[in-house]
Design a protein around this nucleic acid. Structure first.
Lengths: 259, 259
DNA sequence: GAATGTGAACTCGTTCACAGCC
DNA sequence: GGCTGTGAACGAGTTCACATTC
């Protein structure tokens, strides 16, 4: 997905593959759980199972970070938690703003997984004046007018967009203009941003559509399947399928589009 | 010298690459927008721009579906909308249940992107008896006890899990036992499912962590941990942890523990 | 002339298998 | 003996570039 033109030689610094980066949070979560149970060490095999990947991949991933394991023994849980956290930048505190406090925005504001990992919801922003001042997840909602000031006062570099599709691009533009350089977009629309700004998107309906595709496949080889017709017919056979891409949680991230 | 685990004869001719499947919904959305504006045809170039991919990739993707374009002209919008919808299985009606009607579950229930694409929320299910009967998005919440009955009566094959992490696996097991074969998991946990069941996961905090990784990288690139010369992007907490060295923290691990 | 469709080259990611160390 | 770390083989996905068709 070429980030713009030939700007950066890409792999310049210590290039950790993007696929590996996307799995680090997964490992971190599994490790955190082990840490809470005071497990001192894990083998790649055990940790891989807990994270839902295979062990060769995990070892390869860790090898990009350095040699943090001990042969014959495994990995020290606490140490690895720290190393991965540091690599991901979670030893810092990241102030985040959420724009668009509808159902989804509120869900995000309440989501515990943020605070526990170095993210701090610095502000909630909504365009509806009626929302202003109302507390959501204990944080008073502020009006969009304040957006630029909030970003600057709090040194916010990460913004979350949970607005309706139509509002997303303008909001995005304002966030970027105010200094935000990373955006997590929940609105079902393609955002365009200048070079140097990262966008990740999460699209709820896309995920369902991908499931539907596979579900349809499973439902049997309905050859014709033509124009219309086909009454939804509860497909619940045990079509044990051949098409196993491994099992379980495929290491597939919901699409990235750095721009 | 067989490699050992040859499951199936390479790729079936019908096999559409997973990466392509993941982009079809993107194309579909762009096409739907064009369709609403009554645009009759698009070139791969235009459509690619609207979907946020490059045109070579788009053409390659479409080539897996068949030859639906016209050289020298482009693609017929309506026709392509139909073909992609059919390929994704969206010409059918997919009843879906959402389990866990907290903030997120409610957001999902209200999300318009589902209904508009062949997904119908057949039921909302929650473990809290106090929720039972309360309407969310116009649909009365039902108690978990009813889960199996609901799945069977409605022929549901796709389930959405929006419960807390601890409840996810048991709910998953029940869904699968009742006949669900595709699961969209929002709970921050790895689900294990039998062969033949697809799981996709959406993890909000993982996405943020990936952004943090890149954000940290940007900050280290510009200034060498200098005088906070960054635009507005200077995160809190002093950039002590630059990735220049990976010296062992020998004992004092700055635990980044969740609450 | 214009734009699709696609082999071929290339890049990225995964898996294998085993050397190296505890 | 057990487990990590990693080069090498393999496979998936992307990009190139051009023959092909309208």
């Amino acid at each position: 997905m070429a980030t713009g033109r030939t700007h950066r030689p890409a792999t310049r610094s210590r290039g950790i593959p993007e696929a590996t980066v996307a799995r680090l949070p997964l490992y971190l979560r599994a490790l955190t759980a082990l840490s809470e149970r005071s497990v001192p060490t894990v083998s790649s095999e055990e940790l891989a199972a807990a994270a839902g990947v295979n062990s060769a991949k995990l070892r390869k991933d860790f090898s990009y970070l350095g040699s943090y394991g001990t042969r014959g023994v495994g990995y020290d849980v606490e140490y690895l938690v720290y190393q991965i956290s540091r690599e991901l930048g979670l030893t810092q505190d990241w102030p985040v703003v959420i724009v668009g406090i509808g159902n989804l925005g509120a869900a995000l504001a309440n989501y515990g997984g943020f605070a526990s990992r170095g993210f701090r919801v610095a502000a909630l922003i909504d365009a509806d004046p009626a929302m202003a001042g109302k507390p959501v997840a204990g944080i008073p909602v502020q009006h969009t007018d304040e957006l630029e000031k909030i970003i600057k006062d709090n040194g916010v570099s990460i913004g979350v967009i949970a607005t309706p599709a139509g509002a997303a691009q303008p909001v995005c533009d304002r966030l970027v203009a105010a200094g935000v350089t990373s955006i997590l977009n929940f609105a079902p629309t393609v955002l365009s941003v200048p070079d140097g700004v990262d966008v990740r998107k999460v699209d709820l309906s896309i995920e369902l559509q991908i499931l539907a595709f596979h579900e349809q496949r499973k439902a049997g080889e309905e050859t014709a399947a033509g124009t219309g017709a086909l009454p939804a017919a509860a497909p619940r056979g045990t079509a044990a399928a051949d098409d196993s891409t491994d099992q379980g949680p495929d290491g597939d991230v919901p699409a990235v589009m750095p721009a």
